[in-house]
């Protein structure tokens, strides 16, 4: 079963929000809403040994996807071909059950940004799609000669990341872009983390070296 996700290198992330802009542009997301956002995890430690990092957050592509399990209509589903967690906006009734089921989202929709959020205009739920409309068959190793090459396409947030912090691919395929980055980080002994939450196993991975900052998850 494919485990497609983003892998984000926090040693490289500068908090520039290019990924946010690229995502909003690609997916036509209006003011005040986001499929992804970047949270500064506040400085910790004592001067001069202070450390901080930037944490880009979007759907974590949980392996057990409680949002899919909770949806009463089947609108929240996994792509039968590549297992990506998606929302079928035609079927979605806008009941917000999945908001309560996703631990990375505000159960009422009042808090923004939230991984899942309710699109009042359309009356449907929204979230990061891993840009499946571009990447459904891609291995995540970008063809820089032809960025529209579907076999190697990456999401715009990955392509436009100004620091090369983001990678994409199937973690069950060792040849995918994300798997290669992860394997290199592992070989170098760098820290590999997930944003932990009870009841889910997020597929999304974050790389953070101990000499850059201490991993503090979502911070305080």
């Amino acid at each position: 079963m494919a485990k497609r996700t983003l892998v984000i290198d926090l040693d490289r992330c500068s908090g520039c929000d290019s990924c946010v802009v690229a995502c909003k542009f690609e997916n036509g997301i209006g003011l005040g809403n986001y499929y992804n956002h970047v949270k500064p995890i506040n400085p910790a430690g004592k001067h001069p040994d202070i450390n901080m990092y930037w944490l880009p957050i979007q759907c974590q592509q949980c392996e057990n996807s409680p949002c899919v399990a909770a949806c009463p209509t089947g609108a929240s589903y996994r792509d039968p071909d590549n297992n990506v967690v998606l929302i079928d906006k035609e079927t979605c009734t806008g009941c917000k059950t999945c908001l309560a089921a996703c631990p990375y989202s505000d159960p009422t929709g009042a808090v923004r940004p939230s991984v899942r959020w309710f699109n009042e205009e359309l009356g449907v739920m929204e979230k990061c799609t891993l840009c499946n409309h571009l990447t459904a068959t891609s291995d995540g190793v970008e063809n820089t000669e032809d960025t529209t090459d579907a076999a190697h396409a990456v999401p715009p947030c990955v392509h436009n990341c100004s620091c090369g912090a983001r990678s994409f691919g199937d973690l069950d395929d060792p040849a995918s872009g994300a798997s290669k980055v992860l394997a290199a980080a592992e070989a170098a002994g760098r820290g590999i983390h997930t944003i932990e939450a009870e009841g889910v196993t997020p597929a999304c991975k974050y790389i953070l070296s101990a000499e850059i900052a201490d991993w503090r998850g979502l911070g305080e």
């Binding site: 949806c71 089947g74 806008g94």
Partner: peptide, 20 residues
Amino acid sequence: VAKPAQIMAVVRNISSGSPI
């Protein structure tokens, strides 16, 4: 629900066993 007209989707999906 934001789209009450879509409520039949719940009936069609009843076998999913979702808590709702």
